[in-house]
Write a protein that binds this DNA or RNA. Structure first.
Length: 522
RNA sequence: GCCCUCGUAGCUCAGGGGACCAGAGCGCUUCCGUCCUAAGGAAGGCGUCGCAGGUUCGAGUCCUGCCGAGGGCACCA
């Protein structure tokens, strides 16, 4: 269409710029399945009526009549309606593709890194960390399914005084003393102290911090494992300081971006407010580490794109990091930072607000114990990452359709169940008999799945999967309720079983991409 | 004071500049039970899309300002 349009309607001088998206999905089914709005966009530059342009373009469009109907509608839309026979035939196609249904080679093997969680090993993961963990993991799954070469990375901040402070906090706990100034005071310190004492270590042992980190990190891996999350790579901050730091500083200095004042070393942002890179005591700031780290990702390791999942409390860092990348001649658009907003936990009438900074709140582990990993994942995915959310514990535990997780999983279980019941049926499927509104609606929704994945990959918006899943589940329940699958009518039974297979595959793939179980029985 | 995210139905939230786009679920009021799991389905009411301008053939959607909520603005992490 984009290529053909000029020759069909004649090109003016200068030529108009065509929009990137030419065919879009209609939002109202009475207008068909797809629409072309090009005539409306071309009307002004061509100084012609949009309806006339639409008619000419529509007349020139060549689509097999078995595939779709084309219509022109005021004020200048070209609407394409998929033919029933074609829709029905796609049921076989979905079944034949099976597990690959929804996957694509959109990314063409481009290397992408998703870095997420990256919590400091000085305390167990909070529930709010879980949100970033799920968002990052599902973003990675979506990109993998779309043909990107994805690496999942966990960055550990193993330098600096936090580890030392952590060790001092453990020592204080072992001695029954209060935590040091700015130290850690959570109940888990007692657990660590108990383990260390069991191993005959005293408060005077020199490496309490390291031992504590080991304990915490084990627990973090364990929590993530229960959530179904693994990382491919652990990156230590300390590895940035074997020369890479100096090399990067040399580059920045050469670019005239480094200045020393007040005994510290600063990055010249180009605005009035410079940023400290190395503190007066000689230690690097997080900003400096982040510059070294991201230059490493892009230049040394060659990732084309990097997705960082950060908590909302780090958003101040985004602008200056991107500015530093730009200065280093790395296109900042290659870095996407997903800001994950705060989570509060609602238990009955009580709401607990989570605060990372304050280090208080509900631990990820308690929530895994209480509602299970599937509910944690699905509920986090039912909200876009950039909106603050409330997690309703009672709802997550409810075993009914009020709970969107059960609603979706139950739809899958129903299909699996009916497929077992129909396993002995011997009829030959007559797909043209899938002609009720419920069946055709389900087919249309199923066929959207590959687009949903692509859109989620392009926008990096994992929540789109959950909303789609909810739609599929609703359509499945309607189908199940209105179209009895296994009957004496053998060709219809076979056709409906095939549709049930296609729907089950779609639901299973969608739930699978979210890391949520798709049970056959409930 | 500056920056970021959000502001849509009583509640929790979707809405890639398009035409019934004003939505879904929950909650509320009803209805559906020989029969594949009623852990379900069907019907109904619910709104000045925070406010005011602007861009556009067309604006919850983009821009500006204001108001409100939350989070950032450390030689903290």
């Amino acid at each position: 269409m984009r290529e053909a349009a000029p020759s069909i309607i004649g090109w003016p001088d200068p030529a108009p710029v065509l929009p990137a998206v030419i065919v879009e999905r209609t939002q109202n089914p009475t207008h068909g399945d797809y629409s072309v709005t090009l005539p409306l966009k071309l009307a002004k530059p061509l100084r012609r009526s949009p309806m006339a342009i639409a008619s000419e373009l529509a007349a020139a469009m060549r689509l097999p009549s078995s595939f779709a109907r084309i219509a022109v509608a005021a004020p200048g839309f070209i609407n394409v309606t998929l033919e029933r026979g074609w829709l029905q035939s796609q049921v076989d196609f979905v079944v034949s593709v099976g597990e690959g249904w929804g996957r694509s080679d959109l990314g063409q093997g481009v290397p992408v890194q998703v870095e997420f969680v990256s919590a400091n090993p000085t305390g167990p993961l909070l529930f709010s960390h879980g949100r970033g963990a799920v968002v990052g993991d599902v973003a990675a799954r979506i990109l993998e399914a779309s043909g990107f070469a994805v690496q999942r990375e966990y960055y550990i901040n193993d330098k600096g005084k936090q580890i030392r402070l952590f060790g001092e906090s453990i020592r204080a706990r072992m001695l029954g003393e209060p935590a040091p100034e700015g130290g850690y005071s959570g109940a888990y310190l007692s657990d660590i102290a108990a383990v260390l004492e069991d191993n005959a270590l005293s408060a005077s042992a020199p490496n309490l911090g390291e031992l504590g980190v080991e304990w915490v990190q084990e627990r973090i891996w364990d929590d993530l494992k229960r959530l179904g999350i693994r990382h491919d790579q652990v990156f230590l901050e300390s590895s940035l300081y074997g020369g890479w730091d100096e090399d990067t500083m040399k580059r920045l200095t050469g670019l005239g971006r480094v200045v020393e004042k007040d005994g510290a070393i600063w990055f010249r942002t180009g605005t009035e407010k410079d940023e400290v890179l190395f503190k007066r005591d000689g230690y690097p700031t997080y900003f400096a580490s982040d510059i070294f780290y991201h230059r490493d990702k892009f230049e040394r390791r060659g990732f084309q794109r990097v997705i960082d999942v950060w908590g909302a409390d780090h958003q101040g860092q985004v602008g200056r990091l991107k500015e530093a990348l730009r200065v280093l001649d790395i296109d900042p658009a290659r870095l996407t930072v997903l800001m994950v907003q705060l989570v509060s936990v609602k238990r009955g009438a009580e709401t607990v607000r989570m605060s990372r900074r304050a280090g208080v709140g509900v631990s990820l582990r308690e929530m895994l114990d209480e509602v299970g990993p599937d509910a944690v994942r699905y509920f986090f995915l039912l909200r876009s990452a950039d909106a603050q959310m409330e997690f309703d514990v009672e709802l997550a535990k409810t075993q009914s359709g009020d709970n969107p997780l059960y609603y979706a999983q139950y739809a899958h279980a129903r299909l699996a169940n009916v497929l077992v019941l129909g396993a002995g049926s011997t009829g030959v499927a007559a797909l043209d008999r899938l002609d009720s509104e419920w069946e055709l609606d389900l087919i249309r929704i199923i066929l959207r799945w590959p687009d949903i994945v692509k859109e989620a990959a392009q926008a990096i918006e994992p929540h789109r999967l959950a909303f789609y899943t909810d739609e599929v589940a609703a359509s499945v329940h309607r189908f199940y309720k209105n179209c009895r699958v296994v009957t004496d009518d053998l060709t219809l039974t076979a056709a409906r079983l095939q549709l049930a297979r296609a729907a089950r595959i779609t639901l299973a793939n969608a739930l699978g991409m979210m890391g949520v179980a798709a049970p056959d029985r409930m």
